[in-house]
């Protein structure tokens, strides 16, 4: 299927891979924000995940252990954030920014000596006959297993938020932490767990860059993916399936503009690069204008400090 010199099937298949890091990170951040915490340290958690995963995979020769270590690294970072914002009641915006600064520095220190090292390969999953289905097989069934994990996480996040008691509590805490507290829910614990999930997902996203997509280690290699993840959560108006859509759009625009160039079509690169952000603003405006805050999905307590006064 060719449109304007671009093979749409290949385009979709590629953007799924290219978007996986931001999809993972955004899914995690969504849960954290749903619980009412705005963690701007996604970039810092991603880069720590990238290096922890890389080191573990190189030394154990196992990508799976690498991803585990990456999740652990992300969780460790998120717990610093949780300690500061939940227990010590610090401002979330400032703490998140500090977390990114800290993560970028620490990852570079930990990663000294890993330049030019090649990690063990993460092969594509063999799905046998499924791969042979025309079009769909090419798009969906020829990826490495982390792509499927990321899709699974989106589905699981959606299901848990929507259908389980845990999801209900999480949303209640994010909507009105004082009421949730009055009902006897442990606001800080819920938020810490949500943050840890966010950290784990960000770590996985980072490791996907350093272990699968690139694969190599270099300083600052996440190159702003964490910030894009934050934008995607907003774009998605805090809904898991829309996060998937948002991640594919954001990742897809980059892939598309590179492909248009490869096809010899002159495009204003900067205009295309800023387009997703403009669209995000537009989405925000439309949603807030049309139905007000409640329908928008923005957790009402987002970014506010919780302190149980009674």
């Amino acid at each position: 299927m060719m449109i304007g010199g671009i093979d749409i099937v290949v385009l979709i298949a590629t953007l799924m891979v290219a978007s996986t890091p931001i999809l993972l990170a955004a899914t995690g951040e969504l849960v954290a924000e749903k619980s009412g915490v705005l963690n701007l340290g996604v970039e810092g958690m991603m880069i720590m995940g990238a290096i922890c995963g890389f080191i573990a995979a190189v030394h154990t020769d196992s990508p799976a252990l690498g991803f585990l270590a990456a999740a652990a690294g992300g969780i460790a970072m998120s717990l610093i954030f949780a300690l500061l914002t939940q227990l010590l009641l610090s401002n979330q915006v400032a703490t998140g920014l500090a977390l990114t600064l800290f993560g970028l520095g620490l990852s570079s220190l930990v990663g000294q000596g890993y330049n030019g090292v090649k990690p063990p390969p993460s092969p594509d999953v063999n799905l046998g006959p499924l791969e042979q289905i025309p079009v769909i097989g090419d798009i969906l069934f020829r990826h490495d297993w982390m792509v499927y994990v990321s899709l699974g996480l989106v589905a699981a996040t959606w299901a848990v938020l929507r259908y389980t008691r845990a999801g209900l509590i999480l949303r209640a805490v994010g909507e009105n932490h004082d009421a949730a507290h009055a009902l006897g829910y442990r606001v800080r614990l819920v938020r810490t767990l949500a943050l840890a999930y966010g950290g784990a997902c960000a770590g996985l996203g980072g490791a996907y860059i350093s272990l699968v997509r690139v694969p190599q280690w270099s300083d600052g290699m996440t190159a702003g993916s964490g910030w894009i993840a934050l934008a995607i959560v907003v774009f998605a108006s805090w809904r898991p399936w829309r996060v998937l859509l948002g991640a594919y759009i954001f990742g897809g625009v980059t892939v598309l503009q590179l492909r248009l160039q490869a096809a010899g079509i002159a495009i204003p690169v900067q205009l295309l690069s800023m387009a997703p952000y403009l669209v995000t603003i537009l989405v925000l405006v439309i949603m807030s204008a049309r139905r007000g805050r409640a329908a928008m999905g923005a957790p009402a307590s987002l970014g506010r400090i919780f302190h149980a006064s009674s």
Binding site: L83, T95, A98
Partner: peptide, 19 residues
Amino acid sequence: AAIQAFQGMLLFFLLAFDL
């Protein structure tokens, strides 16, 4: 990078003690 990490720590402590 050590300076960056150091600045990060400084901010952590300053924010934490604000409590």
